[in-house]
Design a protein around this nucleic acid. Structure first.
Lengths: 144, 144
DNA sequence: ATCGTTAATGAGACAAAATCTCATTTAGTG
DNA sequence: CACTAAATGAGATTTTGTCTCATTAACGAT
């Protein structure tokens, strides 16, 4: 089953109405590897359902964030971007060339869940950003 | 030695000029536990050096971010906030009441550093946000 | 199918956050 | 203390996000 359909079910089960606009926004995030600004989401959603309004995109992004489906983040350039939450969403960001590497490591989720539990929290999702320098940039650095 | 002085040295060593405005912004972050919006930073900086302009605050926040001294983040309400980076900065955020719990756990930093290293990254800093529900909110939930 | 309720919508006014420009100032250097 | 490039503040401008409100349409009941 596709991600979009799953999410539509989730919305329905939570009692939200499934409108063309919401479907359009959701379908933008069918690919898992996107980090989009609100205006980019708007543009892409309009390709699917040209009538969507800006307000609705913001409302939907907020809704999806509240449901733990998306997560807003600032990847170092001051712009807020939305990305799907996979439990969890872990980035390495190179502070020099800005490339973003996605990490998927179970140890991480396990450790976080445990630490959250120790504090009485029940984890819904988590996002980590690690800022550093990638190998290529370090090598360029030392050469110059 | 105070944090502010350390950071001033860092700026100087990197060849940046130490102006009253930059000092003012830096001194705002002398306390380690702040998560401030740009306009809050401006207001606080003006208490110290009333002449600072908005543009300069943004410029300085960007500079300090680039140097790995501050990190911008979106704590779930869509507002960008800046906080000092301590290696690392780990939050539990309750999605219901919005309380933020700071975690300090060495295992975390160790694991992240290792994972970063595996990818060829040299870590400068890291930030983690775990969204969940705190005990109090869960208890309220079940009672109602 | 159709109806009724109510959530959801789009348009556009509005507000807030961030950027840009440029003439002027000043920190650091010699 | 004079020089110069970096940095600044003011304010115009752009971008991003919010709000209002009249209209629409999703969904359950019939």
């Amino acid at each position: 089953m596709h991600y979009t359909e799953q999410m539509e079910d989730e919305l329905r089960e939570a009692g939200w109405k499934l409108t063309p606009s919401r479907r359009a926004v959701l379908s933008v995030f069918d690919r898992h590897d996107l980090h989009l600004r609100a205006d980019e989401v708007l543009a892409r959603a309009r390709k699917i359902h040209p009538a969507v309004g800006r307000a609705t995109v913001y409302r939907t992004l907020e809704l999806l964030t509240g449901m733990g489906i998306l997560h807003p983040m600032v990847l170092g350039d001051g712009k807020t971007r939305y990305a799907r939450i996979e439990d969890g969403h872990h980035h390495l960001v190179c502070s020099s060339c800005r490339q973003v590497v996605e990490m998927h490591d179970r140890r991480f989720n396990r450790l976080i869940r445990r630490l959250a539990h120790e504090q009485g929290f029940q984890m819904q999702s988590n996002v980590m950003e690690c800022i550093g320098t990638c190998r290529e940039c370090r090598e360029k650095e030392t050469k110059s």
